[in-house]
């Protein structure tokens, strides 16, 4: 009955990949490398354009706080230093993280351990939606809605804690402060921190959670004893990712912060710094030399953000291994 045609041809096993496979692999590789190349190109561009500033001002660029484009006719009178802006960026981003993390933590725990399925779906999409709100909308909302209220909170904070230097103000003006910018940023980074927190909390070992329940542990007890400690380093990583985002945020901060070229640690004072906002505010009308200064500032911000992100990734990774 069986004829030759019935016998399947022997499939040759070859070490050579098929053409389509090669093509696909190539396309994927290009895609993967592209991001790396783009990153390198950006860094290269900033370094190339800003190099002269580092050569002219050296470390002073990082330690001084003067930003003076100088006489239009004489670039040698220009003085560039981003200490105030850098300190401001870190200060505001830190405020944002300090405010956002507790909220993100509660949101993540609620979504993972308390919320019924329907609520969980709604909350997750709402958080995704928050992440999709454009920065400029945040800025406008922050300026016109958040700030009038936040000024009141700042006043209250000042009246109770004004004796502490951090909450002192040089003049009773509470608008456009690092505090308000930080609050706004906190809301903006909430989705990313929450999403990381959810991921790490979701990975808390089910066995131990069950064990906690089965030992008369309350749900809070289980979360406190098992979930939160297990998620701790992951959450730190999430917070740092948020920090990285907060550091680079431009437009929103720009509208709710009074840029002042003076290192300021008084978070309620209406004076602060932000590298990204500096660049945004000066870029349009900068002289060629000032433009180099802005590029150099951009490079510093780029490197700081890169460092923070790398650290965050490492921490999150370590957390996953530990679990």
């Amino acid at each position: 009955m069986s004829t030759e045609t019935d016998v399947p041809e022997i499939r040759l096993i070859s070490g050579v990949r098929k053409r389509t496979d090669m093509l696909f692999r190539g396309a994927m590789t290009v895609g993967a490398l592209a991001s790396l190349v783009i990153l390198a190109l950006i860094a290269g561009f900033l370094l190339f354009r800003g190099f002269q500033i580092f050569a002219d001002f050296g470390l002073g660029f990082l330690t001084s706080s003067t930003w003076d484009s100088g006489d239009v006719n004489d670039p040698t009178t220009a003085r560039f230093g981003i200490a105030a802006m850098l300190v401001g960026s870190v200060l505001i981003a830190t405020i944002a993280v300090v405010v956002a993390v507790p909220f993100a933590m509660s949101a993540a725990l609620f979504i993972e351990y308390y919320a019924p399925r329907a609520v969980r779906t709604v909350l997750t999409s709402v958080l995704d939606l928050i992440a999709a709100v454009p920065s400029v909308i945040w800025g406008i909302w922050g300026y016109s809605v958040l700030m009038p209220d936040a000024e009141g909170w700042a006043k209250t904070l000042h009246s109770w804690l004004g004796w502490f230097p951090l909450f002192d103000v040089p003049a009773p003006i509470f608008g456009r402060s690092p505090f308000i910018a930080g609050l706004l940023l906190a809301m903006m980074i909430l989705p990313i921190v929450t999403s990381v927190a959810r991921e790490v909390y979701g990975q808390a070992p089910r066995d131990h959670v069950d064990a906690a329940y089965a030992l008369g542990g309350t749900r809070w007890g289980a979360l406190r004893t098992v979930v939160i400690p297990f998620g701790r380093s992951g959450l730190v990583g999430g917070a740092m990712l948020g920090l990285g985002r907060a550091l680079g945020e431009t437009v929103a901060v720009f509208l709710v912060l009074n840029l002042v070229f003076d290192v300021n640690f008084k978070i309620l004072a209406s004076a602060g710094g932000n590298v990204a906002s500096l660049i945004a505010s000066r870029f349009g009308e900068a002289s060629p030399y000032e433009l180099k200064g802005l590029m150099a500032a951009g490079l510093v911000l780029f490197l700081v953000t890169l460092l923070v992100n790398a650290a965050a990734t490492a921490v999150v990774k370590r957390a996953k291994v530990a679990v």
Partner: peptide, 12 residues
């Protein structure tokens, strides 16, 4: 030196 106490507000 411009006052840095917030009495001078930079805006775009």
């Amino acid at each position: 030196t411009m006052p840095t106490d917030g009495t001078f507000q930079a805006a775009q």
